[in-house]
Design a protein around this nucleic acid. Structure first.
Length: 604
DNA sequence: AGTATGATT
DNA sequence: GGAATCATACT
């Protein structure tokens, strides 16, 4: 921070980049290994509260909190200056801010047809009502779709023919981390923008050493948006130094994230906060730095400074018992103090895997992937009993509501269209400690409310038969082990066996990587676009585990699309066609299934 | 198959 | 801090 003690920005500062062509090209695949990668974590601000603000149409400055019985589960930012937090009761909240809006969550009610509703007396009915988070799930889906669409726009919009041919089909991947959080891997998108903006990066690799340094970026200053919060650089780094490609990458990433946030605001009126960094861990910490409605950028050269200010117990996975143990083992919670502990000493106290992970994570390393998953893996419906319940009759009433709840959500998820169905159903039950029983859901039967209820009753009988079933303080029903619709599954299995588990390339889940989003039309809308093209024949070998070995002489012509394909691209190209065929077939099936299932429009 | 842990509003 | 979710790892 003191320009005085830097008399002369060293004249030969950055003549070359610190990064290589190989590291640049790794961006295309969402590889976890390149320091140039760009990950965002986006987090909706006080999500449940915002949902109610949108639903009720209240102003942004109106204090509002979401109520569950007599406690608050979300507090909007207008209410926070009054000292209202989630740990406050509704009575205290009213005292602190007399005109606050306290909106109770929607509930199911026994005997009212398994449908949730907003009821003005639900807070009095903790004994008969069960919370429903459905309205928030629905909003979450809308927001996710808006984000996806905006990212699609980025992958579609490019003018340069050469860049199109080099980067066709590259898109960002999006992981739904919870009801109000996503991770986005923007690396492939940024690769495309880089080639577009900097033609000097479009080299053919054949005549180049892929481990040679890149030329430096032709800029001396990064055009940061005024709304971006930049984390201060590490001690030995200076803002006056010329930027390198990682800085350029971060700025483009910030621009993409800004546009996603703007789209969510413009189309749905939700604000969110984002962190942008090299990996998930840093992005996640970053998104919490400036709330609400702001974005924080953790540049590579700022990582150490950034982490030094933290207690490691704030890092993902260290917030619980593991964090406590490490704290007591080494007598500190500070990242900065843990940094001075040599690896061997970590190994002495922790198991191999943990020590290794910890050593890296406090130095800003995290190679976890952004898992392109938007669908959930299990569904749970639960209730805690204030006065415990004491009979099978009471328990079965709740099982009825659980079954209705889960069934409704399964319908949203596509059971009727045979898209996905759960294979296992589980009952959790707590007296002093919690126990659970699970059984398979018969694959032959049609899943409906009654079936779920019957299976649940069955499980309850098992639990009760084991004794000590009462008084019960907590009961829950869940379904899990989802499988995809039969047609899709069979086809993919066929694909895998035909390949005889041949070494798959790079990362990932075989054919599924071609489905960046659901091939099925979403609830309300829109004709799926059929304008994709096969992956380009690429002169670059970073796709293959063979690295620099480039059999450039072997070329074939694809009999499906008449494109010229190098031999080493052949397999991937065939896979692409296979995925496309599958997608088309699925779409047709889904369409006809939808036409058959009649217009029982669910209540909004 | 069943349990425990961790994280989020 | 409690309630309701979700995910994953361990045994």
């Amino acid at each position: 921070m003191s320009p005085a003690d830097s008399p002369n920005a060293s004249p030969d500062a950055v003549k070359r980049s610190r990064y290589t062509l190989r590291q640049l090209h790794l961006l295309r695949q969402g590889s976890t290994a390149t320091p140039l990668r760009a990950i965002a974590h986006i987090d909706l601000d006080a999500f449940y509260a915002q949902c109610e603000m949108v639903r009720l149409g209240t102003d942004r400055d109106t204090p509002l909190a979401v109520r569950q019985w007599d406690s608050l589960i979300a507090v909007n930012y207008a209410a926070r200056p009054y000292g209202i937090t989630r740990m406050v009761t509704t009575a205290e909240a009213r005292k602190l801010c007399p005109n606050i809006v306290l909106q109770h969550v929607a509930t199911f009610r026994e005997g009212e047809g398994g449908r949730w509703a907003y009821r003005d007396d639900s807070f009095k009915n903790i004994r008969t009502d069960k919370v429903s988070l459905d309205p928030y799930r629905a909003e979450s889906r809308k927001i996710l779709k808006t984000m996806k669409d905006e990212l699609e726009r980025w992958s579609a919009d490019s003018v340069d023919e050469e860049v199109i041919s080099l980067t066709q089909g590259l898109s960002a991947s999006l992981e739904k981390a919870s009801i109000d959080e996503v991770f986005i891997d923007m690396s492939p998108l940024i690769y495309r923008v880089l080639l577009q903006k900097y033609p000097e990066l479009r080299q053919k690799s054949q005549d180049d050493n892929r481990d040679a340094d890149l030329p430096p970026p032709p800029t001396t200053a990064i055009p940061w948006h005024t709304g971006d919060s930049l984390i201060e650089l590490d001690k030995h780094e200076r803002e006056e130094d010329d930027p390198d490609w990682d800085d350029v990458v971060m700025q483009i990433a910030a621009e993409i994230v800004r546009s996603v946030r703007t789209a969510v605001w413009n189309q749905l009126h939700y604000t969110c906060s984002a962190g942008v960094a090299r990996n998930k861990m840093l992005a996640k910490l970053g998104s919490a730095c400036n709330k609400p409605n702001a974005q924080t950028i953790v540049r590579n050269r700022a990582i150490q400074f950034f982490l030094n200010g933290y207690k490691f117990t704030q890092i993902r996975m260290l917030g619980g018992k593991l964090g406590e143990q490490i704290t007591s083992d080494f007598g500190t919670e500070q990242v900065s103090e843990l940094l001075s502990i040599p690896y061997e000493q970590l190994r002495a106290k922790l198991d191999d895997h943990t020590a290794n992970w910890l050593y890296g994570v406090i130095r800003g390393e995290d190679r976890s992937e952004v898992n392109p998953r938007t669908q959930i893996k299990s569904m749970l419906s639960a209730k805690s009993f204030r006065p415990s319940i004491n009979s099978v009759e009471q328990a079965e009433k709740w099982l009825h509501i659980f079954a209705a709840d889960i069934y409704g959500r399964l319908v949203e998820d596509g059971v009727l269209e045979n898209r996905r169905r759960p294979r296992v159903i589980t009952l959790h039950h707590r007296v002093a400690q919690s126990r659970s029983r699970q059984i398979p859901i018969p694959g032959s039967s049609k899943i409906d409310e009654d079936l779920l209820f019957d299976l649940a009753k069955n499980l309850l009988r098992q639990v009760v038969a084991e004794g000590q079933a009462w008084p019960c303080s907590n009961l829950s029903l869940s379904v899990s082990s989802f499988e995809d619709g039969v047609s899709k599954n069979k086809a993919i299995e066929g694909f895998l066996s035909s390949r005889q588990r041949k070494k798959r390339r790079i990362d990932d889940g075989g054919i599924k990587r071609f489905f960046t989003h659901s091939p099925f039309p979403d609830d309300s809308n829109s004709a799926p676009a059929g304008n994709e093209s096969p992956p380009p024949a690429d002169q670059d070998s970073s796709n293959t585990p063979l690295g620099d070995f480039e059999p450039t002489l072997l070329q074939n012509t694809c009999d499906r699309c008449s494109k010229v394909i190098p031999e080493y691209e052949r397999e991937e190209h065939d896979d692409w066609h296979f995925a496309k065929d599958l997608e088309l077939q699925d779409r047709q099936e889904a369409m006809s299934a939808q036409q058959q299932s009649q217009q029982q429009t669910p209540p909004k």
